[in-house]
Each structure stands twice: as structure tokens, then as C-alpha cells.
Amino acid sequence: MSAAAPPVRGKQGPDTDIRARPVLVRPARPRRPGARLVFLAVTAVVVLAFWSVDIDWSQLAGFPANLLRYLGLMFLPPDLSTLPSAFEATVLSVQMAWLGTVLGIVISLPLSFLATAGVGPAWVRWPLRGLFSLLRAVPEVVIAVLILSVTGLTAFTGALAIAVGSVGTLGKWGYEAMEGAERGPSEAVRAAGGSTAQMLRWGMWPSVQPEVLAFWLYRFEINVRASAILGLIGAGGIGKVLADNVQFRIWDAVGTLLIVVVVVTVVIDLVSGALRRKIITGAWR
């Protein structure tokens, strides 16, 4: 055996002549002190949160049994006689979401044109972008609480809250899409003597249209969920009916309401998702 034979770790088979084989050295484990530090810090934060929070964790012991009991009360069987009224309330929520989305689109579309680089002047562009990020930072429910505390609680003001909440995301998506669009058509319109409005309509819009339409649909899906939540704080619709039934502990009606919420949300997501794919890829799949 030559002195230069590599060190070999691990089990060796009956065949002891290892020189003909590839070297079986396990590479050293890479050391990453930075990643380790981050991992420790994250663990510390999580442990601290669990330890310091004002929660009696022993309550959790009875939770699974409790949950099963309540699920039984809700779904075994659900009170299907409330199905028509549950459906009606859901339709109101969806109407709220739809109207809010349409209003949000009507407000945000011109604003996002103005916020696009090369269209609006800088002194309009930056304040608008600031407004969009402000509106995105505040949860919709908080915007709703603000609007509702000023104008009172109706489904219409709920739709307004949804509209305001949508303007932030729709505005941002809009100007990002338009800035990512090809410059060529817009420049061509300009070169042919077109006005800014003509440039937007014939140069910019055709290339961003599919993307923007898909965003609108996606925002509608989000708003359907938001409108259910707004009902909980009094704006009407499925959320309000659900909160009332929970308060009076009419569990079999709550079960029906949950089923309706799930079915309606899933159906809207499916239809909207299919439409979005059709818009983006140009084909039904």
C-alpha cells in the first residue's frame, strides 16, 4: 500500500483493495455562520412570542374535542331550511364586491395612467404612488371602519370601502404593467402626431389590456372575501347574517352559511380563474 493512499471513512466491504475505486471521502459540511445566526434569531423571536403572549395554552387541550362537537352541531346536519336566506345574503355580499371592484377600477384606471412614467408629470406621479402604497398598507377592514364610522353602516358604504381598498393595489398593478409595456407602439403614435390620450388608447392600452383585465378579475376574487368580512362589522351581507347566527348560537344555520360561503367563493374563483387564463393565454383550457 502506498503512503499516498487516501483516507477512507465508512464501512468497507469484503473487498479490501480500495485503490481501484473512487475516493470515498465525504466532503466537509459547508459552514454558514450567517444562516445559523439568522436561524437562532428567528427561533428566539418565536420562542419569545410563545412565552410572553397572554394565552393560556392549556385551553388548547380541550380544543380538538370542542371543535369536533361544534362541527357536529354545524354540519350534522346543517339547517337547510335557511338555505334561501343564506344564498340571498351571499348574493348581497357578491354585489357589494362587484360594485366595489367596478368603482375601484373606474377610480384607479385614470390614476394609474397618471402615475405611469412618461405620461403624468413627476409632481403628480410621486404623490399618486405614495397614495397607492398608503392605501395598500392599511387593511381593508380598517378603511371600512373609517368610512363606516363617517357615513354609517350600509351595503353601499361597504362597497365604497372595498372600492377605496382596491384603488391601492389596482393603481400599483396598473402603472407597473404600463411601464413594463413595449415602448414601440406608443412612440409610433407620438411620431404620427397623436395626443397623449390617443397614445394611451392606441399605443399603450392594447399591449397591457390582457394583464390589466386579469388583475381586475383577481381583485374581484379578493373583494368577494373582503365583502364577507365587512359584513362582520355591520355592512350587511353574509358576514352580518353569520355574525348574528353565531351570536345567538344557531349553529346549524351557521353550518349552512359556511357551506354557501365556500361554494360561492370556490365557484367564483373557478370562473374568474378560467377567464383570467383565457385572457392571458388566449385559449380555454
Binding site: I55, L67, V141, A228, V266
Partner: peptide, 29 residues
């Protein structure tokens, strides 16, 4: 999980509050 995801978090909270009581635990769940 598609079904679980289609119910908004605040609806879960509204129901859980009556099951486990008001407070942080129902929110966390």
C-alpha cells in the same frame, strides 16, 4: 385545503371566538 382557504380569516375568528372564548387564542387559531 382549497375549502379551508376559501373562508376568510375573520369569519373563522368570528366563529372560534364563541368556541374557545374571546382573546388571542381564538385569533391565533
Amino acid at each position: 385545503l382549497n375549502v379551508v382557504r376559501s373562508v376568510p380569516d375573520l369569519l373563522y375568528a368570528a366563529i372560534l371566538v364563541t368556541i374557545v372564548g374571546t382573546g388571542a387564542l381564538s385569533g391565533v387559531i
